[in-house]
Design a protein around this nucleic acid. Structure first.
Lengths: 199, 199
DNA sequence: CGTGCGGACTTGACAGTGTCAAGCCATCCG
DNA sequence: CGGATGGCTTGACACTGTCAAGTCCGCACG
């Protein structure tokens, strides 16, 4: 271990470059050579740092999960955790993240190359799920306890995915706006998940 | 229009080859040249037939949606449509399809190259959604009517997607098995969606 | 004050990819 | 019987990910 890196934090510069390419042109534009060029290094530098393209995408996903966690957490001014309102708010933030950063969202959930077992991305993903879990009121889903957060995530994630395909929009336009419909669904689910009082 | 095709239904043979590659090795293995080789034609034949790789994947997705529709429809021996039981059954078939044909499922819902606006794949996708819609009992989701099928699809689709990431399994193992938990969630949602009597 | 060593990248190469222009060749129309 | 037309092939090109070999700089050690 003699040599310090020549350019300071090459790794994070490569990640910046990759995320910018991702945002602007989708995951298919995140090319080893394009990332290298944007970071002003040789075409093989990303391979040296991340091993292979899957490694690069995995590292980017870790950052993406961090951004998702931050977006879900907000600035701390939300309603108290574990209430119906907090669940709805976190759900809406989830959907908002998908609309604001669709390519990052795709990277996190729709990109098979990512190695989800790697500890970095696994814990980052678990952290995002943790925000959601804490926001969900302690609910009962018969006959099994503990499934309310799962159900909540499934609903939110399903709404986000379906929203992208356009299948949702047609249905939504017949009724209310997309936002209002999503909000209504989340509110409804939140009430349904919550056992009895608390309302 | 003078010339008949030399090899009978080259197009469908290419699609067969593509779907086999997809099933065995994922969408990244569906290469123009690999598909061509498997169908015993020149390496540029798929490009000639489908225009480009996105065209090939789109055509494959159309077939995939047909298979999904068939799988959801079953052999016609299910419970009567529009009941709670039918909704649960179709939902479970949806999840079953994802487990049986994970790569096709990914192609349909997680592959951005697909041109979902093309009429073929759009109508095929709408047909699959139609099976789900007809199976859902006429429900009320306050304050907007008509959203029960959307909610049902979101739940099912979200469960399927989350199941793949492994996040679900850990949660499920703490309680029941995966199948049982999914079934419970669907049953619960079906009851919640259905207004009052009918039970 | 060298001197060599190890690690951070670079250079150069290779096989494989999608796409396109040009070509071949059987068939149909005249 | 002779074009011409359209189905598919051949050949080429730019681009991709990956890897072996090389370069060069800073540190440890003599």
């Amino acid at each position: 271990m003699t040599n310090p890196p020549r350019s300071p934090d090459l790794r994070s510069r490569l990640l910046d470059a990759g995320l910018e390419l991702l945002r602007n042109a989708g995951v298919s534009a995140v090319t080893m050579r394009a990332v290298a060029a944007r970071a002003d290094v040789s075409h093989a530098a990303p391979g040296y740092v991340f091993g292979d393209r899957a490694g690069l995408l995995t590292a980017m996903a870790e950052r993406g999960f961090d951004e998702l966690t931050a977006h879900l957490s907000g600035r701390g001014d939300g309603p108290e955790a574990g209430t119906i309102n907090s669940m709805v708010e976190v759900g809406m933030r989830y959907l908002d993240f998908e609309r604001r950063e669709p390519e990052i969202y795709r990277l996190l959930f729709d990109t098979p190359e990512i190695r989800r077992a790697e500890p970095g991305v696994a814990t980052a993903g678990a952290a995002a799920f943790g925000v959601l879990t804490r926001a969900v009121p302690p609910g009962i889903v018969s006959p099994a306890y503990g499934l309310a957060p799962v159900l909540a995530w499934a609903v939110v994630h399903g709404l986000a995915s379906l929203g992208r395909t356009g299948a949702l929009d047609r249905q939504f336009e017949q009724t209310v706006g997309r936002d209002a419909a999503q909000h209504a669904l989340l509110t409804w689910i939140a009430h349904a998940v919550t056992p009895a009082p608390t309302d």
